[in-house]
Nucleic acid binder design. Structure first.
Lengths: 332, 332
DNA sequence: GCTGGTTGTGAATACGTATGTATGCCATGA
DNA sequence: TCATGGCATACATACGTATTCACAACCAGC
């Protein structure tokens, strides 16, 4: 069934090691032999077994990517550029969705079946990074990190983004603002909230707890949060959402509840997913380069695998930009 | 760095094969020895190297999944259940996005680095299945297939779904209908169009070429198609879209163009993605069980890998159901 | 005390590639 | 003519696991 380098060697009249070297363009093999080997390999339709190669080189050229819920529209926009960048760097992608099942994930990660891991779902209380560290498995954080020093991470200036939004809302005259923030055990959730709060406070605007909701970065979080926020007294005139997916949940809930956006309520998201620009949403949001965020993470991981990296950690931070569209307006 | 079964053997005072057997619950090893080995493995934090295992067993417990554009909202809803089902069956998922680059894909697929492949992007003119066949690599089609006999495929009753839509539109009095169908080299595109046309014809309703657009199953296809369709004379009162993503493109274009849905135009999709139910769309569409479609493909592939399968091919077809929401109305 | 069957374990080996080291060959220069 | 050195290739082996086969130890039965 399987053609091996031995078969090629026999046909080409050389030894197996020569086949190995010839096909990988080792300069020590002469041009004539190389050509002979190439032809034999071609004739037999030989493809080197990556299992053999892996065992011999102790490198799999494979990288694991851990996400939670793939059907969340955010992740595909991370996974796609990540896949392509890794592919360009000669690595393949194993997709792993980490449910509560951390034990299983660990088992899968620690069997040397990949050279490194991209963690796109880190929570500040996750034990996984420590496990990886102990086993010497290279990993980087993507989008979220643990917030601790020494991390290798590709992230966004979340705090800055939160500030941008607060300043815009204040400039528009909003004094009663609300937030549907991400989970408190994620850095993305915390930092966006922090930046938002700090800049509000600088302008003398408060953010009271009954106008704050926290939850997973999901559609439903936004959809279900709206009624609670509207029940606050006085009701908020603007709401900053933890990300675009949450904001889209809020927009849909607003439509269902007959709340006019932006006349009755200003809604602002974060991420600027392509979907945010759709005509039905025209969502005002905070942009960052999600593709670059991912590619950067891929390159950082590959550098870490190769060991060409600052042992004290590297944290690559992408800037944010306010994107005004049609879901914000002056306070009424 | 890496702990091997030899290390465990040494600590437990047994031979390496005994470790291998004990940890995999081979009945030939005594309970006492098994326990001793387990303890040693635990103490050393031993995890079997999957590279060694792969080389020895010639099975990788890995499956490749080929998609085109991950950022298309359709794919995550396939990949997520596929991942989970495969995971439950003891397989891991390698994600591969196949650009025009077929050669690269082949190379990656044929190096024995996975036990089987799920093809979610088959076109009727793809050479890949033949390549896989020649190398004896098990594969199944998911959602799309080649339309040839002997395939292993998990698909939807596309023709039936197309018929459902045609009958509903006819019943609503639509006589000038349009279609934004999928690409002609996909079975999903062809079969939905076919069913739609056949049932229209049975009702004596024609579908003229200037009210037909074909293109990739993407947002932009729908978004860009609308102006062309509206230019037809007489303009259509209803449009059937190749899938929900296309329909959502049409809905957004309608909003931009000031076309009222469903008063001016009925729009119908296909797939019933969660997004279709969003308040901003309330898309009338054709439902099938996308999760089951994927899980079924996973099980079929695993059976094919195990060889427990009808050599003449197996084609699992899921039924469709019309889902009336808010984007259809009587013809004016 | 021998045979024959079980049961549990170890020795040897296969899997396919890559690599460190040795070997053979040839040209060069004295 | 022979030593030297560079070049191309072969030999041996490592990588970590699973498996085949052989072999002990043990027991039952005669």
């Amino acid at each position: 069934m399987g053609i091996t380098s031995h078969d090629v060697a026999r046909l080409a009249g050389v030894s197996q090691p020569t086949v190995s070297r010839a096909l990988r363009d080792d300069p020590r093999v002469s041009e004539a032999t190389r050509e002979k080997v190439r032809r034999a390999a071609q004739a037999l339709n030989y493809v080197p077994s990556e299992a053999g190669r892996t065992l011999s080189t102790r490198a799999t050229r494979r990288v694991g990517v851990i996400v939670t819920d793939l059907t969340n529209p955010f992740y595909p926009h991370v996974i796609a550029p990540l896949h392509d960048e890794l592919s360009g760097l000669g690595y393949r992608m194993m997709l792993i969705t980490e449910r509560s099942d951390e034990a299983v994930a660990e088992e899968k990660l620690l069997d040397q079946s990949m050279d490194g891991v991209v963690l796109a779902t880190a929570t500040t209380d996750s034990r996984l990074p420590a496990q990886l560290e102990r086993r010497g498995m290279p990993y980087v954080f993507l989008n979220r990190d643990t917030g601790r020093a020494g991390d290798f991470a590709s992230v966004v200036d979340n705090e800055g983004g939160g500030r941008l939004v607060a300043r815009e809302l204040v400039a528009l005259g909003h004094r009663h603002v609300a937030g549907v923030f991400g989970a408190a055990n994620t850095t993305t959730g915390r930092e966006r909230e922090l930046g938002f709060r700090l800049a509000l406070a600088e302008a003398g605007v408060g953010l009271v707890e009954d106008r704050v909701v926290r939850g997973a970065f999901e559609y439903d979080t936004g959809y279900r949060a709206l009624p609670a926020l509207l029940a606050a007294d006085p009701a908020p005139t603007a709401v900053f959402c933890g990300n675009d997916v949450v904001a889209i949940g809020v927009l849909n809930a607003a439509l269902a509840a007959g709340v006019k956006v932006p006349d009755d309520l200003t809604v602002v998201g974060f991420d600027d997913l392509p979907m945010a620009a759709w005509e039905v949403f025209r969502l005002t949001t905070v942009r960052h380069d999600l593709g670059e965020l991912s590619r950067q993470a891929a390159r950082l991981l590959v550098r870490r695998i190769a060991g060409e990296v600052d042992p004290g950690g590297e944290r690559l931070v992408l800037p944010t930009e306010f994107v005004p569209r049609a879901t914000h307006a002056r306070a009424h």
